[in-house]
Design a protein around this nucleic acid. Structure first.
Lengths: 228, 228
DNA sequence: AATCACCGTTGTGTATACAAGATAGGCAAT
DNA sequence: ATTGCCTATCTTGTATACACAACGGTGATT
């Protein structure tokens, strides 16, 4: 998996470790409730405890793990309700991006946005959800940046990143791709038109739907697990 | 060296160090551009470099300092524009809290909110800005919690905390306290009435004003510094 | 005299060693 | 037999030691 060659060592090791551990958390290698033993991680990655500790501290301050004094680090049990809360906030952040973007977007950014949108269209027509998923990220990123609020861009990007695994679950929901694209269409039009309220509303709805889809999925899984 | 007695040692030292350093950053003891030497900080606080490093990493992941590989940690020059961006996001987060609170607040929370509001009123009548400042924090916290979105509460609280020093600057602006209270009054009414859109708008305006006040203040200082 | 290269110093990044607290297991007493 | 206490061990938290990279200074060469 991770060959030592691909590690440039030009950056801090703890930072790279943080990304690796984060990867393992969001991909489910370290499922919620897992106790992260420092020595164990150090052995796993072939480094000493110091960089591991630094990585854990960083992850904890981002909220990805919890560190209790003298009791170690654990992957928190992110309840489905918590994820829904996060989607709710995400919806509002995106709405804000849209509202600002509609007012502040530059001609160049308009072109970039439309280009990203057309790329999504191509992926939809080709019926390639994985590609669409990637291009969708670009599309949203374009909107973030068009808000011309650097802090907002950072916040939105961070939360988007944290929600990535849960969003990925919805990839193969029936017609999700086509529906998503249509929503994108309305969003782009609102932003280009400069209708900030409409853009905000469209984006809020667009993301809220994702949260609801997630809730549906969880409910389905719960019923399934209950063996109904 | 600080006396060991005042350190409870019940928590991680790096965490306490983080708060101390944060304190010194926001209070201007370490002004923007300052280079934070690890050994120097270690000597200052009478600890070794390890906890200092951990504290710095945590502060960096929160965005309070910047760490460049092999080049140490520095207090970033937080441009006034950046702070304004943060106020802009804060306004939206608070608006979201208000919108949700108007829909979800419980009778008990209504009472708590009104109580906090009346406490602010008392501070205003007593003309005690410091007290008002503290009670104002409680007031806003009550609204956060009434949103019934734990993640949102965390985000709003964190950002509120980061903006604290800049908000504090406005304490003694003329009539700010009275104006603030009047805005609070409208906010409470909107929430109690259950008018989510109105509550959101009121809160957004309430916080946006703070951002604008800050911008004014910065502009004034800049002119003053320019020696006009 | 100016520029480049080499060396020394300074400070970060990592590893290891040490101390303290927490947990778990066993033993004893009721 | 059960419960409470004590101890042993394991893990975290902190300190120290070492390695390496970057910056600055000085000297030699062009």
């Amino acid at each position: 998996m991770n060959s030592p060659a691909e590690i440039p060592a030009t950056t801090r090791q703890s930072e790279r470790l943080g990304e690796l551990i984060e990867e393992r958390i969001v991909t489910g290698v370290y499922p919620p409730g897992t106790r992260l033993d420092e020595q164990e991680l150090a052995d796993t990655f072939g480094v000493s405890r110091t960089p591991v500790r630094e990585a854990l501290i960083q992850l904890s301050s981002v909220g990805l793990i919890e560190i209790k004094p003298r009791r170690g680090a654990t992957v928190p049990e992110v309840g489905a309700d918590r994820v829904c809360e996060m989607f709710e906030v995400m919806a509002e952040l995106e709405a804000m991006c849209g509202r600002l973007a509609a007012r502040r977007i530059t001609p160049g950014e308009q072109l970039a946005l439309q280009e990203a949108h057309r790329a999504c269209e191509a992926a939809r027509d080709a019926n390639t959800p994985d590609i669409y998923y990637q291009l969708n990220e670009v599309f949203h990123q374009r909107i973030y940046e068009a808000s011309h609020n650097g802090f907002l861009v950072e916040q939105a990007t961070a939360l988007h990143r944290r929600l990535r695994p849960y969003r990925r679950l919805q990839l193969r929901v029936r017609n999700r791709m086509a529906t998503s694209f249509n929503e994108h269409q309305a969003i782009v039009e609102a932003i280009i038109k400069g209708d900030s309220d409409l853009a905000a509303a469209q984006l809020r709805a667009h993301v809220t739907v994702q949260g609801e889809r997630f809730a549906d999925l969880v409910a389905t899984l719960r019923d399934f697990k209950a063996g109904a």
